[in-house]
Amino acid sequence: MENLENWKIAGSIAAKALQYGKGLIKPGVKLLDVAESIEAYIYNEGANPAFPVNLSLNNIAAHYSPMINDSSVFNKKDVVKLDVGVVYQGCLGDTALTVDLSGKHDKLVQSVEAALAAAIAMIKPGVSTNLIGETIEKTITRMGFKPIKNLGGHQMKENNLHCGTFIPNYNDKSKIKLEKGQIIAIEPFAAPRSSYIYEKGDPYIIMLKSPHLLYEYGISDEFIQAIEPFKHLPLSLRWISKRLPLEKWLPAVKELSDKKAFISYEPLCAEKNDVIVQAEHTIIVDDPSIILTLA
């Protein structure tokens, strides 16, 4: 497989960053401090974040990353989904886990960990994605919970985090089969009551629809240089704010937003009083398959 070593490096850094971040999540600690510490860890390892570190609490499944000057802190009742992505020479690693600060949802957390392990065990070329989803669904429901049906795993290619084959968290009747050499993320989510999530809240993660729009709309060279490392992947405005003063990046962001040049990633939420958990690994489809994001 071309660039296999780079895929392994990206996965290894993501795995180490995830475990490093897990140790930082404690009551009273700022979400912003944890996110920026994990992102700094990734940079220090010689890679870049593939997306802003996600720290999604309680009924939020994904897509919450601390904003600029975010003052929110973890509390002892929080159930935290930590999702970390790494890009190294275009190759990606995507991995996630759940930290239950409340200590009240051990079985729920175990349900997605067991579903992830069961799904990985059956991955090889020729396996239908609906059968992977069925395994995830049966594992979670046997433990008394529900899989989130409108979230799932995904294929990855160089500098492309979500593309091609979708890996459902239930039997969606799809007949798509995995192919040798594909890079996929398996990503079960579960909750006690909810089977679906919805978008709610302001997006703190955005992505350019196409890098060429920077030139088409005559955006300043300074802004183009600041956004260069992130132009193919999701990003946070706090990253840009570290590279340019407000008066130089805000007008460019506003113009691009007005022209609908960004994809926005709003937080993905379940019912207010429900709790969502998550687990994720990145895998190369083979026989046997290779888990890239093992610590």
Rank of each mutant, 00 (worst) to 15 (best):
E2R: 13
L4K: 10
N6H: 14
N6I: 11
W7T: 08
K8S: 08
I9K: 15
A10M: 03
G11H: 12
A17N: 11
L31V: 04
D33S: 08
D33G: 02
V34I: 12
V34D: 09
A35Q: 15
E39Q: 15
A40K: 15
A40W: 05
Y43Q: 08
N44D: 13
A47E: 03
P52M: 00
N54Y: 08
L55I: 05
L55P: 01
N58M: 11
N59T: 00
A61H: 10
A62E: 07
S65C: 10
M67G: 12
V79T: 12
V80Y: 04
V80Q: 02
L82C: 11
G90Y: 09
L92G: 07
L92W: 13
G93N: 13
D94M: 00
D94V: 00
A96Q: 05
L97M: 15
T98M: 02
D100L: 11
D100M: 13
S102V: 11
K104A: 09
D106N: 11
D106W: 06
L108Y: 13
V112Q: 01
I120A: 10
I120C: 06
I123D: 00
P125T: 01
P125S: 01
G126H: 03
N130Q: 12
L131C: 02
L131Y: 03
E134V: 02
T135V: 12
I136P: 10
E137Q: 15
K138V: 11
I140R: 00
M143N: 07
G144R: 08
P147R: 11
K149T: 00
M156A: 04
K157I: 00
N159D: 14
N160C: 10
H162S: 05
F166T: 02
I167P: 11
P168H: 02
Y170T: 07
N171Q: 08
I176N: 03
K180P: 08
E187I: 03
Y196K: 12
I197G: 06
I197D: 04
I197W: 07
Y198M: 11
G201Q: 08
G201R: 14
L208S: 06
K209H: 13
P211V: 11
E216F: 13
E216R: 14
E216I: 14
F223A: 03
A226S: 09
E228D: 15
E228I: 05
K231S: 14
H232C: 08
P234R: 00
P234D: 02
L235K: 07
K242I: 01
R243N: 12
L244C: 03
L244E: 06
P245F: 06
L250W: 09
P251F: 05
A252F: 04
A252G: 04
V253E: 06
K254D: 06
E255G: 00
D258M: 11
K259F: 06
K259I: 07
I263L: 14
I263N: 13
E266C: 09
L268Y: 09
N273D: 15
N273G: 14
V275K: 15
V277S: 08
H281G: 06
T282I: 11
I283C: 01
V285G: 05
T293F: 08
A295G: 07
A295F: 08
